[in-house]
Simulated assay, not measured.
Amino acid sequence: MIDVAALQALRSVAALGTLARAAEELGFTASAVSQQIKRLEKQVGVPVLAPAGRGVVLTPAGQAVVDSAPEVFQALERCAEAAQSVADGEPRGVVRVVAFSTGIRGLVAPALTELGRNCPELALQVTEQDPDQALYSVDAGTADLALVHDADGLPAPMSASLRRRHVHTDTGDVVMPQGHPLAQLSGPDRPLTVEDLTGQAWVTSPPGTVCHQWFRRLFAQASEEPDVRHLVDDFATQLSLVAAGGVIALIPRLARPPVPPGLVVRPLLRPPSREVHAAWRRSADTSPAIQALVAALSR
């Protein structure tokens, strides 16, 4: 393994041009710096400096080592910051978040406002991933926290090295034009029943999606098959087709874009739902950054 002090010595020599000037900057003797460089050369297996007049220059291998040094020192700084964060209880640093698309829209994006206000030294790096891949990324260490939803009522399988916490229950509502007969049923807060929905024309998500499973489950006990006119995955497009008239839509609250004027949203008596969980490595249980993020996602 490369000695960090020797790597720092080489970087100083590269910047200042001589062992003596590097020694002065680092607070060592020139002999001590020379020994550090020799130790580094032994560790990497090739010379990293070559004489040049009264000074020295980097060999190509030495230049490659110096070019890589910033990443090493940045990683060490992040490590120190993380340790200090745990020690003083202050959320800071970068949390790598992987989450499904509508979870980013409905939970992560709103949480950014709160975190920016309450945790100014904490930053999120967000990547869209499906639940299975997201859990794998956290378990493999390429992400710090996953936001996942259950599949057809069953939680996604999870490694024993991970911990999960429920942060949200997502449910579906029916969107329709203001003048639609269902919109006139005894007030905007009256939940709609499956009987109310029988005989209506629909736009819904394509087969294979969670929202199509919701739709099929909603009509599982219905006396007749629903009249599906359109299969569209994008919810903004679904709203456009609803606004055009002739169909209504079942849309999850997390996924619902701003509802255009002229459309209304009505709740269901027994709405389909999915549970949303945050998952992280058990080794990060004491991380103030993870704790702050999970708290913000749970609001």
Rank of each mutant, 00 (worst) to 15 (best):
I2Q: 12
I2R: 14
D3P: 11
D3W: 05
D3A: 08
L7W: 01
Q8C: 10
R11I: 07
L16K: 10
T18G: 02
A23R: 03
E24C: 03
F28S: 07
T29G: 12
S31H: 02
V33C: 12
V33P: 15
Q36I: 13
Q36Y: 07
R39C: 15
Q43E: 15
V46D: 06
V48S: 02
A50N: 11
A50E: 14
G53V: 02
G62R: 00
V65D: 08
V65R: 12
D67T: 13
E71G: 11
Q74G: 06
A75G: 08
E77C: 08
A80V: 11
A80Y: 14
A82F: 07
V86F: 01
E90Y: 07
E90N: 08
P91S: 10
V97M: 01
V97I: 14
S101G: 12
T102L: 15
R105C: 05
T113C: 09
L115G: 00
G116W: 09
E121D: 15
L124M: 11
T127Y: 04
E128W: 00
Y136C: 04
V138P: 03
G141C: 04
D144E: 11
A146L: 07
D150V: 01
L154V: 13
A160Q: 11
L162H: 03
H166R: 12
T169Y: 02
V175F: 05
P181E: 00
L182V: 01
A183N: 11
Q184H: 15
L185A: 13
L192N: 06
T198M: 14
G199N: 01
T204A: 13
T204C: 06
S205C: 10
S205A: 15
P206R: 08
V210M: 12
H212A: 15
H212I: 11
E224C: 13
L231E: 07
V232E: 12
A236Y: 06
L239A: 11
L239M: 13
S240N: 11
I248F: 00
P252E: 14
R253Y: 05
L254R: 06
A255G: 15
P261F: 02
P261W: 07
V264Y: 00
R270Y: 01
P271K: 02
P272F: 01
S273G: 05
E275R: 09
H277E: 12
H277G: 03
W280I: 13
S283K: 10
S283F: 02
A284Q: 03
D285K: 09
A289L: 08
A292S: 11
A292P: 03
L293G: 05
V294F: 05
R299W: 09
